[in-house]
Structures are given as C-alpha cells and as structure tokens.
Write a protein that binds this DNA or RNA. Structure first.
Lengths: 143, 143
DNA sequence: CTCCTGTGTAATATTTAAAGTTACACCTAT
DNA sequence: ATAGGTGTAACTTTAAATATTACACAGGAG
C-alpha cells in the first residue's frame, strides 16, 4: 500500500473548492476535469469528506463548500476519511509464514512491535500538515 | 504504495539466518518454507541484500551468512535494498491533473513540498529501527 | 570428471488491488 | 415536468505484485 492517490485527489479538490467555491457551482463533473479522474471517483471522495464534516455538498443541484477551518483539516484527517483502513494497508507483512517454524510463528508479533512505532510516527507527520499550510503554499507558488 | 511485503520477508529471512545460519546450510528452499513465499522471491530478496553487503550467499552449494553488525542494518537500509524506489512508490499522486486549470497546473509542486517532509520523517523512523532491536524483540517474545 | 544440489536471472503467467465505466434511483431549482 | 445534479451499486478494465517455469552456471561429493 501506499498513501493513496485518493488523498492527493482530495487535496486537489479542496484547493479548487476553496479557490472557486464562492464564484462557481462546483460539480463533480468540473472537478473531474480539473483532476483528470472520473466523476464517480470524485463523488466517492467528496462523499467521504462530507461524512467527516470537512465539506458540505448540495444534493440535487450540486455545489460544494468547505465547512471547517482550514487549520483543522490535517492530512491525516483527509487520508483517514478517504481510506479508513490506511494504517493497516500501509505496511505489508507476508501473510503465510510457516507455523511449524519458530521464526514463522513469531514474526508477526515481532514485526508488529516495530511497525507500530512507524505507524505512530507517520500519524504525527500527517497530522502536522494542514490544508492551511497547503493553501498558503499554493498561493505562494501559484501563478 | 505501501512498505513492501518484501521488506517483511527480508526481515524474516535475516532472523532465520541469524538464528540458524551457524548450524544449518540455509538455502532459498528452506527460507521459502519458513516464509511461505516461493524460492525465487526469496532468492531475489537475498540477492538484493547481498548487493548492499548485508549478507553473503555461497554460490553453487548454497548457504547464507549475515556479514554486517546487526545494529548497522536499519529498516530503512533493508527497505531501500529490496525496493530501491520505495520513497516514490510510497506516496501516490494522481497522474493526470489538467494543465488548463490553475490548480491542476500547480498541484504537483504544492504537494511535493508537503510530501517531502513526510518522506524525510519516514526515513528517520525507518532508520531508527535496526535488526539488533528486532532480534532482541524476537528473543524476548520468542518461545 | 561428472552428477547433484543450489544460485542468479529472465520470461511468462497468475493473482490481487486500484481505478474507471455504466447504470439508475432520487433530489432540487427552474 | 424536466434538466442537471448527487449517491451508490455492479461490473469492467488496468496496472502492480507475486508466483511459476525454465535454464545457464557454480561448487562439493563421490
């Protein structure tokens, strides 16, 4: 696993909504054009963000707004929303070690202990970065 | 991407070699039985570890030995050896944002800046854990 | 010096996970 | 009532990871 591309699409959408949400009615069609992925994928991602109260989407007529202060939206929150099981997917452990071998029997427990620390550290990294910082960055870099 | 299962297989093999390398002649066949994956995969992983001077494998007759102090073998070194491109694979960015859209044009540069920090943090986490710690853990937990 | 068992590695096939597509019920503003 | 949206399920396609097959070559044992 890796940190899903869904996460980067979500960020892309959030920037777009933040920048143009006031003047335009943002539809999944529009976002799919900007992100280059298809409208259903966008809708699924939006749906996930909505469930975590990061944004609100108008049913029926379309239109999305961010409904949460930017500095409360961390990368971790976004990742977790679009890929709830991401911490487990992130680190792969071979699934069929032999129970007949002393190493095989214990490898999972042993690895878990070390990998748990890596997960904790990663969560801290992801939590430290928020949409505020990303959008500041966008304004600085952006045309 | 995720941290490859190859990495966990590599660790499994290293523990096995450390524990039994003196008394037994360790072949890819034997390791494949213990890890539950096939001998060619094991050989490829061993080959990668060998290239990074983590272990030495006898050609022809078989038999593997660790040829590096355990505390010099970090998780990062193992991951890097078995999956050289892992940092890039780890974090996914959608590949086709529209160049016609201001957000699409700049998203890669903006994300890179934040993701770079996550990569750096992760490398630090992975470097902090070494085979010494893992094998100590194994002895503590192990039967 | 030849047979046996093993490594190294390429080519191919299989499996699995991610992403895209199609389809359609339901909502809402006009 | 209708046109243009959303939400979501089922299915298809694509791409990546893993396994399989195959074989040239190495080295020890007889």
């Amino acid at each position: 696993m890796h940190i899903s591309t869904k996460c980067s699409i979500a960020i892309h959408c959030l920037i777009f909504i933040y920048e143009y949400g006031e003047e335009k009615r943002i539809t999944s069609e529009l976002l799919s054009l900007s992100t280059g992925c298809n409208p259903v994928t966008v809708r699924n991602i939006m749906s996930a963000l909505k469930k975590d109260n990061i944004l609100s989407v108008k049913f029926g007529s379309g239109g999305a707004k961010i409904c949460c202060p930017l500095d409360k939206i961390s990368l971790y929150r976004i990742c977790k929303a679009v890929e709830p099981d991401m911490l487990n997917k992130l680190i792969g452990i071979h699934s069929a070690p032999s129970p007949l071998c002393p190493v095989g029997r214990n490898i999972h427990a042993v690895l878990d202990k070390s990998y748990e620390k890596i997960r904790t550290d990663l969560v801290a990294s992801l939590t430290a970065i928020t949409m505020k910082e990303i959008i500041d960055n966008y304004h600085y870099k952006g045309a």
